[in-house]
């Protein structure tokens, strides 16, 4: 190989990579509106981002996985601990982390700024980011359900059935509510797919159904609970 050939390797390699990269950048800009729900990117959300930057939150916490690793990731913080949970921790960290060996500074953030940040976190939490972080993934069972599976030895679907309060209305083997039909033999009447459909949106199956749609179930939870019921 001569120096001249080496130079051409350099030039063509660079151009090839840059073309791929810039083309994908162009396309990313076109898709990002949908992926990040730009229609919901309100002034309040932007104000929240400014407050987030003003207090340098990102040099302790990651968001979308980037930043510092001293505090928990904030991508899905609203889904995880709720809006009140977020407000309380920013407003009074001394109390919120009284028992923790790691402290969060009290930065005297104004109430309006806290409200803005909550809006910002809520918006970030809904970005379609290939389901990261895994601990907040919709593909997993909640922490309580996992504990039941691990310690009591029930099937994941049974754990969901128990933890999500299905038994407030339905009964199994005589235990549970009487407001709705007992489900002891539901598996003989309905297929797995039918159960999934019903739980997600009862009215789509029976317009007169009184059961509320179980919207807060994650995909994984729905799948597990349907599997469990169809086996009865």
């Amino acid at each position: 190989m001569t120096k001249k050939i080496a130079f051409w390797i350099f030039l063509l390699g660079t151009i090839a990579s840059a073309v791929v990269f810039l083309a994908a950048t162009w396309d990313t800009h076109k898709q990002v509106a949908t992926l990040s729900n730009v229609d919901k990117l309100s002034d309040r959300v932007v104000a929240g981002k400014r407050a987030f930057e003003k207090y340098n939150c990102n040099d302790c916490h990651t968001i979308l996985g980037f930043g510092a690793y001293y505090g928990p990731d904030l991508t899905r913080v609203v889904q995880r601990i709720g809006e009140d949970g977020v407000r309380f921790r920013i407003k009074d960290p001394e109390k919120a982390f009284a028992k923790s060996f790691r402290k969060m500074p009290d930065l005297r953030v104004a109430d309006t700024e806290i409200a803005d940040m909550v809006a910002f976190f809520k918006w970030v939490g809904e970005v379609n980011n290939n389901d990261w972080p895994p601990q907040d993934s919709k593909k997993r069972l909640s922490r309580g359900e996992q504990a039941m599976v691990a310690t009591v030895g029930v099937s994941p679907g049974a754990a969901v059935f128990q933890a999500k309060g299905c038994m407030n209305c339905h009964a199994l083997r005589g235990t549970g509510g009487t407001f709705a039909p007992a489900l002891d033999t539901v598996g003989r009447r309905k297929t797995l797919k039918e159960i999934e459909q019903y739980v997600r949106d009862p009215k789509s199956v029976n317009p007169k159904a009184q059961m509320p749609p179980q919207k807060e179930l994650s995909d994984r939870e729905l799948e597990e609970v349907a599997k469990f019921l169809s086996s009865l």
Binding site: S17, V20, F66, V127, N129
Partner: peptide, 15 residues
């Protein structure tokens, strides 16, 4: 390295 930048775009809401 240029197109490799993509290894930071997995989980940020990019395609």
């Amino acid at each position: 390295g240029i197109a490799g930048t993509g290894h930071h775009y997995y989980w940020i809401g990019a395609p």
